[in-house]
Amino acid sequence: MSTYQPSRRMQSLTVIVAVLLFVVTWLALATQTSASAASAPCGPGDANRAALKTVHGERALRPCLSKVNLKLSIPQDGLRSRFNVKEIRRAGQETVKFADGSTEKLWHLSFASFKVLDGATIRTTDNNDAQVSITPDKEASFGGAADSGKPIYTDVWVSAATFRINLLLIGCLVPIDVSNPLLALVTVANSAIPNAITLGGCAIDMDIRYLVSYSDDPSSAGNYPVRLPNTTLSLS
């Protein structure tokens, strides 16, 4: 053996340390994998998935829900209409299960379209530092008509919501909580005369736990559930 190499013992030691390091790192990460598999997001066997049904067509949904809220806010700016919502229905209060096994009573709302006319902000409750601002040139819409003309409905499950809508004679002056009986009245009207009532509003605050858009005849060409023509999205 030449003088350019460490001693035989040192070489053996180096190899043993290297192999041990490799094996230990491998095992450490393999253990981490099995630990994360054991704590599956919705419990063993997905037992903690929520059991939800849509208002239209009673489609069964089994989402795995975290407790992070999506907060949608449109602040008031005088009596100017800043959004409108078509065919809003309040399906009632439902007990919904979360991934951690806990439950909460959420209000279930449904609408055929929701248009932001001026500007809205969206943020999640797990990050208070950042929010997305939606500033449409004319309007940004959620839902609306699919390519076939059939509506794309959106159902939301909210833990809290407050609207200022141009309802009856109260205008935008009085905030209406999601539990307000007036929304039951609107729901009855929408069921009696479908596709008839579009409400304008000045402000909204919604704590959304879950939302889903669906249609009997989904679009394949261009009319999708979220439409943001000439809309500026900014992160702040």
Partner: peptide
Amino acid sequence: GGWNSSAAYILGGGLILFGLVAAMAPIH
């Protein structure tokens, strides 16, 4: 991210490690 995302670092790191050790300990 668990094994699926760390496998490349473990196996790639292992290759680098064995390459360097082969240069340091040629008798093995």
